[in-house]
Computed example of a mutant assay.
Amino acid sequence: MGLEVIAEGIETSAQEAMLHRIGCGQGQGYRYGKALPATEIGCLLEGSTQD
């Protein structure tokens, strides 16, 4: 079908590895970063967060 798939809820390296094995190269979840309020996006892009 030519569709790109983004897997959601990736939390562990094992989940990430499994997705790569089946050919899914894009994912999102706590493995890559926590959800942020819109007011903190600028800090994230600048390389610093307000934690």
Rank of each mutant, 00 (worst) to 15 (best):
V5H: 04
E40F: 02
L36H: 05
G33N: 05
A14M: 09
V5S: 06
G27Y: 00
V5Q: 06
I41M: 14
A38I: 13
Q28E: 06
R21Y: 02
Q26W: 12
Y30C: 02
E46D: 15
Y32P: 00
T12D: 07
Y32G: 03
L45I: 12
I22C: 11
L19K: 00
I41C: 07
C24V: 15
Y30D: 06
Y30W: 13
I41D: 03
L3E: 02
Q15T: 07
H20A: 13
P37S: 14
S48W: 10
M1D: 11
E8F: 09
G27D: 00
I41S: 01
M1R: 03
E11Q: 09
G9H: 09
Y30H: 04
T39A: 15
R21F: 01
C43F: 05
G2Y: 03
T49R: 12
C43P: 07
Y30P: 00
L19Q: 00
R21E: 11
A17H: 07
Y32V: 02
Q28M: 04
G23Y: 03
E11N: 08
S48H: 15
G27K: 00
T49I: 12
G29R: 00
G23T: 01
G29E: 01
S48L: 11
E4M: 07
Q50L: 08
R21A: 06
G47D: 06
M18Y: 14
A7E: 10
D51H: 12
K34G: 02
C24K: 01
G42Y: 04
A35M: 03
A38K: 06
R21N: 08
E4G: 10
G2L: 08
A7D: 10
A14I: 12
A17F: 05
M18A: 14
H20Q: 14
G47L: 07
C43R: 11
C24S: 02
Q15P: 06
G23K: 01
L36C: 02
I6G: 05
G27I: 00
E40Q: 14
A14V: 12
G25V: 01
Q26N: 12
G29I: 00
E46L: 13
T12C: 10
C24M: 03
L45N: 11
R21L: 05
K34W: 03
S13T: 09
K34Q: 08
E16F: 12
T49L: 14
A17C: 02
C43H: 11
S48M: 11
C24T: 06
T49S: 11
R31L: 13
L36W: 05
L45G: 07
Q50P: 08
G2D: 13
E40S: 12
E46S: 15
P37N: 09
D51L: 09
E11R: 08
A7M: 10
S13Y: 07
I6L: 15
D51G: 13
L44P: 04
M18E: 13
